[in-house]
Design a protein around this nucleic acid. Structure first.
Lengths: 248, 248
DNA sequence: CTAATCAAGTTGTATATACAAGTTCGCGAA
DNA sequence: TTCGCGAACTTGTATATACAACTTGATTAG
């Protein structure tokens, strides 16, 4: 009873989508293989082409299918090897779990960019760039060491800000919208200064999130976010049963 | 010249989408605010409702807008704090960059699940579970220590496989499709056995990816993937300018 | 045999129309 | 004043139709 009821109270385009996904999951329509054309699906479901087209187009956008104009619609590769991990803002994370977020400004100055940094920011070597070190605490426990280099062309007034009241991230996103970002996660043993600030034992490892951000057509900032390896994790969860798939 | 040309050779629904995104990015239509109704957009673009509807519906699916039937369409929250990081399969990654992937089977046996593991796999304590340790090498350099616990109910023949020819991941996904997965990334100092296998100096940190996978309605496997912190990174890149946005 | 051409099939986009379903707000009845 | 109802507006779904753009395979002319 619930079977038929569930079918009929879903919109038609959704039932077409579900059917196609079922066929793929069951292996009836194999990876790389061609699925029935829109006109065939129209016939099978007694639906109009617009309805079938919507179903197939949405599945294509969700990564289940690839469409080639003139040729047909094909089952996309599974891409199950790639996994998306969510990295949240430390401040949002703390506030969300009801914690109190505070921060200490450990440095806020201008430095000459070493060649490697200059290259990352797409500036000439030894150009002066802004530099800040902020220690983030959750209920007075240090959880993140944020070291950041900022392109002065992007945020000329960076050094005049009070970063105990607003995080550099929040300030920078006000200057201009993020256009692109690149992230790397690595494990490392922190330097002595960081180790002490994060209240780590000697030899305790850190999770380092390196982030490069583009805005206004230029590299806006490079940041290193160091977290105690024993007290901090990045966590992600995915559900392959639901409508969307990770890829694409 | 290219401006006008670029406009007119894009399909109409795409131009509507671009316009809406521009208004949002420029802050003209503020977060949480209501955007013009479909009929207003029809008027503005001299387009049919189906075309406008497609544009708005797609932007809603991409996370830019929230729609409430009967009430209107609203600009979604920015969610710029959350970032998606791609974690790829070690084998796919090695093959893609032209490397040679080999693996050594260091253990393949059955063990009694300690309480914590049993709980993770949703089994009774001391139930026998399959266990494997595989060392993955890229051009004979060790890059990943894979330790895995497998629910025997999911893959009864796990112990009979030759994991030098096929990775456990590939074998397990043949047994049944992944329905859900949970990941954690942490930094840690490996035990002596792992340290030696990965050719690490004493005190060198590891990136540990902990993965829990569901299939067939049960917890199929838990795996620990340990990577040398100094030789391995997870990298992700995002482009906020393009059509898709990370969040929901 | 080869190369150009064409017909058939497939997807991409766009319109006009219709009705269903949900929200909001104002007006009128109690 | 308050409650309920309904009009107006909004989004959700579905159809029929049309033409454009592209691919593929067969046919035909050289």
């Amino acid at each position: 009873m619930s079977e038929a009821a569930a079918k009929t109270d879903h919109p038609l385009y959704q039932r077409v989508k579900d059917h196609i996904k079922d066929q793929i999951r069951a292996g009836v329509w194999a990876e790389g293989g061609r699925i029935p054309s829109e006109s065939a699906l129209m016939e099978a479901f007694q639906a109009s082409r617009m309805t079938v087209n919507r179903a197939v187009r949405e599945l294509s956008a969700e990564g289940w299918l690839n469409r080639i104009q003139g040729a047909g619609t094909f089952v996309a590769g599974q891409k199950l090897h790639s996994v998306l991990l969510e990295v949240r803002s430390i401040r949002a994370e703390i506030l969300e779990r009801g914690g109190r977020h505070t921060s200490q400004v450990r440095a806020l100055d201008s430095v000459a960019a070493v060649p490697r940094l200059a290259k990352a920011l797409e500036l000439a070597s030894n150009t002066q760039v802004f530099h800040s070190i902020i220690l983030h605490l959750e209920n007075d426990v240090p959880v993140q060491w944020e070291e950041r280099y900022v392109n002065p062309a992007f945020a000329p007034n960076y050094l005049k800000q009070d970063f105990t009241r607003q995080t550099p991230y929040d300030y920078l996103t006000q200057q201009g919208p993020i256009e692109a970002a690149e992230h790397q996660v690595e494990a490392l043993i922190p330097e002595e200064e960081v180790r002490k600030a994060l209240h780590l034992e000697a030899g305790e490892p850190c999770l380092n999130l390196l982030r490069l951000t583009w805005s206004g057509g230029l590299v806006a900032t490079r940041s290193h976010l160091l977290h105690p390896g024993s007290r901090y994790r990045f966590i992600g969860r995915q559900d392959y049963r639901s409508a969307d798939r990770p890829g694409r």
